[in-house]
């Protein structure tokens, strides 16, 4: 079995759960500074930040994946307490910063070892998940970047005079 790059993933811990993202889609790992909160935005969007001149939409992964929110002070947009990290990805020609709790190691996760989503998986999570891997004692959820970031397309119905 030759290890291919399609099977290489970056793992991350979010809300106590282990996730994996295809390494080819992840551009970098960084500590987000000065996240500007956007008033009136959907809950999944934590705000915007500037990384070397490129504006990234910051996505709160806990919210997006239906996990419990991180306890945090409400001090206007800068993530508090624990130092969060973010993974930068690109989707439909825009840049996004995915807020995670901790980054894990890079792992080889061949598709053949992947199982279907368990039937009792949370709907929001299942929508973005490609499947799960059983690692010693832990369950790891593999995420699809594009489906992960398509979360507002359901709301295309006409808004009553927005």
């Amino acid at each position: 079995m030759i290890a291919t790059i399609q099977d290489k993933f970056v793992t991350a811990t979010i809300g106590g759960q282990l996730f994996a993202l295809p390494i080819q889609r992840v551009q970098e790992l960084f500590v987000p500074e000065r996240v500007m909160r956007v008033p009136l935005a959907v809950a999944e969007v934590a705000g915007l930040l500037n990384l070397r001149g490129r504006i990234h939409t910051v996505v709160d992964m806990r919210c997006r994946l239906g996990l419990s929110a991180q306890p945090q002070h409400d001090n206007g947009g800068v993530s508090a307490q624990r130092r969060q990290v973010a993974l930068s990805v690109e989707h439909k020609r825009e840049s996004y910063a995915l807020l995670i709790d901790e980054v894990g190691e890079v792992m080889q996760l061949p598709a053949v070892d992947r199982d279907e989503n368990p039937a009792n998986m949370d709907a929001a999570l299942a929508q973005a998940s490609l499947g799960v891997h059983r690692l010693e004692g832990r369950l790891l959820v593999v995420l699809d970047v594009d489906r992960l970031l398509d979360f507002d397309l359901h709301s295309l119905a006409p808004k009553a005079a927005a």
Binding site: V38, L48, G53
Partner: peptide, 24 residues
């Protein structure tokens, strides 16, 4: 505006100021 925020009628775009801050 970011695709996820475009529907907010109050804003028409974003910019980066001279001090590096992103503002709406």
């Amino acid at each position: 505006m970011s695709g996820k925020l475009r529907h907010i009628a109050m804003f028409s775009g974003t910019t980066i100021l001279g001090d590096g801050a992103v503002i709406l």
